[in-house]
Structure formats: structure tokens, C-alpha cells
Amino acid sequence: MTNSPQQQAISGEPGTGPVPAPHEVERIPVDFWFDPVCPWSWLTSRWLLEVVKVRPVEPRWRVMSLAILQANGRLPREYRAMLSEARGPARVCVAVAAEHGDRAVPALYTALGRRFHEQGLPQTREVVEDALHEAGLPAGPAEALHSRTYDAALEASHKAAVDLAGDDIGTPVLGFGGLREGGGGRRAGFFGPVVNPVPRGEEAARLWDGVALLAATPGFYELKRSRP
């Protein structure tokens, strides 16, 4: 018997081909934790948007922070200062989620990512306000750039990623819920996948199938090779 499209997407069954139209298939929610200043998060997020075109996947955009992940008094002072500054854009994303809802986050992330990772612009208030404008949002959340108002919310969102994937990780984190193929409805989360360049089209779909299959395998923890 052939698995349903939902089961195929989770199990990574090869040869699934194009998925039916979105209204015909229940889309699979996948949590994606990112830090807006992390270049690897950016590349993985662009891959995930490619996956949405060819698999019934519904990303839920969450925020985590390299500054929290790498908080360590033994790090050089200059590096700790850089990480402290890097917390700002994550705070802004959390502020947008709190004030305008989770659905407003992906457009802002795309606008910030274009500026930080494609145009090489600095993480200044002017750049952040411009990104907010592009995302159709007011400039108010830019206040969070240098404010601790949303730190508790950021730390809670970050903790959810660490609770799922462990603390020996980086950004991004991909979270799967209700895995059915051998997983007994369990939750699973992993760092990555780390990709460069971004897979497109069917190549993106094949990578998704492989990642989903690994996530549905009880006892699987890590598959890694050195980055160039």
C-alpha cells in the first residue's frame, strides 16, 4: 500500500514527486529556530522556503540567539561584546512576534537577512527600521534593538530550541512534531541542516526527505562533516 503524502513527507520515501495542491493535503508544521545575524540560519531558511514549494510543509518561525548560546565568561572580551550587539536583531524579531503575531516574523526575517547577509549592511537602527518598513511593519519594534524589554521572551524561545535539540548545538534548529514513522508521536529537533549553496527545486525536496527520514529514526543523533 502506498503511503499518504503526509506519511511520505515525514518518512522520506523516495519517488514522491510533486505534492497535491495545498488545499488537498494537511501541511506538516515544522518549527524553525533562527538567529537573524547567523549566516547559516539564513541559508537554511532559504532552503526551507524552497521546500514549501514542493512538499506539504508549514514552517513556524521561532527565534533563538547565538549570544545566549555562546554566553561564556572565558571568551575574549571583544567577542563577547560582538555577541551582545548581535542579540539586538533577535530582540526585534521577538518584539514583532509579541506585538504583531508570529505570522509577521518571516517577512521581517527576509528583509533583515537581505540586508545583513546579502548586502553586508550593519545591524544599526536605521537598517532595522528600513527592514521593518519593507515587511509592512511600523518602526516601533526597533526600540527593542538596545532594550531588555523582550529578553525574557527571547530566552524562553531560545530555551525551547535547546530543550528540543540539546545545548551542544548552533543555529539554526529544525523541530519536528508528532513524527509517526517509528517515532510514536515523539518530538525531535536537530541543529541544521547546514547548507551552502541553497538547494533549489527537487534538490531541496530530496534534502528535506532525507532530513525528515533521519528525524523519524529513533536514536539518531548526528551526521556531520567539516565545512570548507
Rank of each mutant, 00 (worst) to 15 (best):
Pro89Phe: 04
Gln6Ile: 14
Gly140Lys: 15
Arg103Pro: 09
Gln7Cys: 01
Ala131Cys: 11
Leu179His: 02
Phe220Val: 05
Leu43Cys: 02
Gly183His: 03
Gly210Glu: 10
Gly88Tyr: 07
Thr44Ala: 15
Thr149Ser: 10
Thr44Gly: 11
Val30Trp: 08
Val198Tyr: 04
Arg60Pro: 03
Arg87His: 09
Val94Thr: 15
Trp40Ser: 00
Pro20Asn: 00
Arg206Glu: 15
Arg180Met: 03
Glu85Pro: 00
Val92Asn: 04
Pro22Thr: 07
Ser226Val: 12
Leu48Arg: 04
Gly177Gln: 13
Thr171Trp: 00
Ala95Leu: 09
Glu126Thr: 14
Ala97Asp: 10
Gly185Pro: 00
Ala67Tyr: 09
Arg60Trp: 10
Ile68Ser: 06
Leu108Val: 03
Leu132Pro: 07
Ser226Ile: 05
Arg148Gly: 13
Gly178His: 09
Ala204Tyr: 07
Tyr79Arg: 15
Pro56Lys: 11
Leu112Asp: 01
Thr44Glu: 10
His158Phe: 11
Val52Asp: 02
Gly178Gln: 04
Ala156Asp: 13
Pro20Gly: 01
Arg187Ala: 06
Gly140Tyr: 12
Thr110Arg: 08
Tyr79Asn: 08
Leu43Trp: 02
Thr44Met: 13
Pro14Thr: 13
Val127Leu: 11
Glu203Ala: 15
Leu223Thr: 08
Glu181Cys: 06
Gly189Trp: 03
Ala204Phe: 08
Trp40Phe: 08
Glu50Gln: 13
Thr124Pro: 10
Val105Ala: 10
Tyr109Ser: 04
Arg77Val: 12
Glu126Ala: 15
Ala71Arg: 15
Pro89Asn: 05
Thr44Gln: 10
Arg55Gly: 05
Trp40Ala: 01
Leu207Gln: 04
Arg27Met: 04
Glu143Leu: 10
Gly210Ala: 10
Gly101Gln: 13
Ala152Ser: 14
Leu154Ala: 02
Gly183Pro: 01
Pro138Lys: 12
Tyr221Leu: 14
Ser4Gly: 12
Gly101Tyr: 13
Val57Ser: 00
Ala215Met: 02
Gly120Ile: 01
Ala81Gly: 09
Ala67Asp: 11
Val128Leu: 13
Pro89Cys: 07
Ala161Asn: 12
Thr16Pro: 08
Arg91Met: 14
Glu222Trp: 07
Gly185Cys: 00
Gly189Tyr: 02
Gly166Lys: 03
Gly136Ala: 11
Ala142Gly: 08
Ala9Leu: 02
Cys93Trp: 04
Val51Gly: 01
Leu145Asp: 04
Phe191Pro: 01
Ala95Asn: 10
Val30Ala: 08
Ala81Cys: 04
Arg46Pro: 03
Pro14Ala: 14
Leu207Ser: 05
Pro141Met: 06
Gly178Met: 02
Ala104Asp: 13
Thr217Leu: 00
Lys159Tyr: 05
Gln123Lys: 15
Ala144Met: 09
Gly17Leu: 09
Arg125Asn: 02
Val19His: 08
Ala188Pro: 01
Glu129Asp: 02
Ala86Cys: 06
His158Gly: 05
Val19Ser: 07
Ser11Gln: 07
Asn72Trp: 13
